[in-house]
Structure formats: structure tokens, C-alpha cells
């Protein structure tokens, strides 16, 4: 294994150790599990499709809290290292700035996927207790949520590489919200009378990440088929967005002065 990979692995492992000590992360995880658990109560309010409502609410809770954790920890990812000056001793070693950034990113993604696994176990437990059906579609929906979180961390890492945590959080939340509506905006734009509006919404959908493409909750909950081509394309785009955001983050980070 080359020195670069060893250094990246060391930084990633250390990031996981650092992140799992963050108390806020456990608070968010607790509320996520609480919401997954109370989805059982919400489902009892309905006379029809109780299992589907339960799973719908639980999967939404996983996506929402996963995103909150990704943004909350992601935006402080680089800033905290600069603020605490731990980055000085790391970059004085034969570790490039790109190695550092990639190591931090992978460490946080690993942390989030561990969180996702815990939440998924909560989801399976609630489904099992209420005898709601579980199928491969649920696993695919959860895996795509994991990919969405990886994209979100890449977005947070990009903003974290040049902005304060507060601004980085604002930018990340903004892009998260816009990323979930670009598909709808494009559909609305197609109905507009103005060609300019139509073109604008088409380009917004093209240049911004389509985060809604990672949401397969409805198909999974309703037992609908998940088209492999569409899921596969969303996965490819997800990996592509991660690489794109990290590349821009690396370029920005490489030019920074650590004063």
C-alpha cells in the first residue's frame, strides 16, 4: 500500500474516532431512533395501509436525520482542524492537502454509514415488530440514502474548505433543498409560457445535483419495482457528484493560507 493510501486511512480512522465522540451526533441519532419508533404510533392513527405509513415515516426520518448529521458534522470538518491548529502538524508531514481532505471525507462518510446502519436496524426492528413486509427494495432505498449522504458530505466538505461553519451550513442546507426540487422545477418550467424560464429550469436541473434521484422510498414502501437502469444511473451520478464536489474542494483547499 502506498504512503498516500496509508496516510488517508490514518486520517479517516482518526476522523471516525473524533466524530463518534461528538455528543450532538448521539442526540440526533437518539431523535432519529425515537421518530422511527414513534412511526409505529403514527401508523396506528390510520385505518388503512398502516405498515406502509409506518415504513414511509421511518425511512423519511432516516433520510432527514441522516442529512442533518451529514451537514452538521460535515461543515466543521476542515474548519475545526484549522481552528484547533491540528492541521499544522499533519500537513508538515509528507501528507498532501488532497490526502488530508480525502481522509477527512472518507472518515465522515464511514461515520455516517455506521449511523445509517444503526438507524436501518431500528427500521428493521420496528417493521419486524409490526409485521410490516421487508424486501430487497428497502435495502436498495437505504443504500441510495447512504449514497445521498455521501454526496451531502462532499457538498459540506466543499463549503467547509473555504467558509465558516455557519456559512457552510447555510450553503449546504440551501443546496440540499434546491437539490431536492430541481426535478420538480424542471417539470414546472416545461409548462411555463416563457422559453427563458424553461431553459433556466432545464439548466438548473443539469448543473445542480438531483438529490431526489436518490429517493426510492415510495417504490420500496409500496412494493413497486425499482428500475435497475434508473437506480444504476442515480448511483453513477451520485459517485460522479462526490468526485466533482471533492475535486473543487481540493482545488480551493490547495490554495488556502492557514494563518
Amino acid at each position: 500500500m502506498s504512503h498516500h493510501f496509508r496516510a488517508i486511512a490514518a486520517i479517516a480512522i482518526n476522523t471516525v474516532r473524533d466524530a463518534v465522540r461528538n455528543k450532538v451526533l448521539y442526540i440526533l441519532l437518539f431523535f432519529a431512533l425515537l421518530l422511527i419508533g414513534t412511526s409505529f404510533l403514527l401508523a396506528t392513527l390510520s385505518y388503512v395501509e398502516r405498515e406502509r405509513i409506518l415504513q414511509d415515516v421511518a425511512l423519511a426520518a432516516i433520510r432527514l436525520f441522516g442529512a442533518a448529521i451529514a451537514i452538521f458534522i460535515g461543515v466543521g470538518l476542515v474548519h475545526r482542524e484549522i481552528d484547533r491548529r491540528t492541521i499544522y502538524t499533519i500537513l508538515s508531514k509528507p501528507v498532501s492537502r488532497v490526502d488530508f481532505l480525502v481522509g477527512k471525507y472518507l472518515g465522515l462518510v464511514a461515520t455516517l454509514w455506521m449511523q445509517l446502519l444503526v438507524m436501518a436496524m431500528g427500521f428493521v426492528a420496528v417493521s419486524w415488530l409490526t409485521e410490516a413486509p421487508l424486501a430487497a427494495g428497502h435495502a436498495i432505498a437505504l443504500a441510495m440514502t447512504g449514497l445521498e449522504l455521501a454526496v451531502l458530505v462532499a457538498i459540506a466538505t466543499l463549503f467547509s474548505s473555504f467558509a465558516t461553519p455557519f456559512l457552510a451550513a447555510c450553503y449546504s442546507v440551501g443546496l440540499y433543498v434546491v437539490g431536492h426540487v430541481t426535478r420538480d422545477l424542471r417539470a414546472l418550467g416545461a409548462l411555463a409560457d416563457s422559453e427563458g424560464v424553461t431553459t433556466l429550469t432545464v439548466w438548473l436541473h443539469r448543473i445542480l445535483p438531483d438529490l431526489a434521484s436518490f429517493n426510492w422510498t415510495i417504490e420500496a414502501v409500496h412494493g413497486l419495482p425499482l428500475p435497475p437502469a434508473e437506480v444504476g444511473w442515480a448511483a453513477v451520478m451520485g459517485v460522479g457528484w462526490c468526485i466533482a464536489f471533492l475535486t473543487v474542494a481540493a482545488i480551493v483547499f490547495d490554495r488556502r493560507d492557514f494563518r
Binding site: N14, R17, D18, R21, T86, Y88, T89, P94, V95
Partner: peptide
């Protein structure tokens, strides 16, 4: 460059390290 830093050691002013280690 970064590769030559195998031969360089650095102690910053008032250093801070990961205190959970």
C-alpha cells in the same frame, strides 16, 4: 512539495493535538 517532508520535523507554537488520544 510534500514528499521531502519525510526529512522535516515541525513543532508549532502552543501546539494542540487530538486530546482524546
Amino acid at each position: 512539495e510534500t514528499a521531502f517532508r519525510h526529512h522535516v520535523g515541525f513543532l508549532p507554537e502552543s501546539p494542540y493535538f487530538y486530546d482524546f488520544l
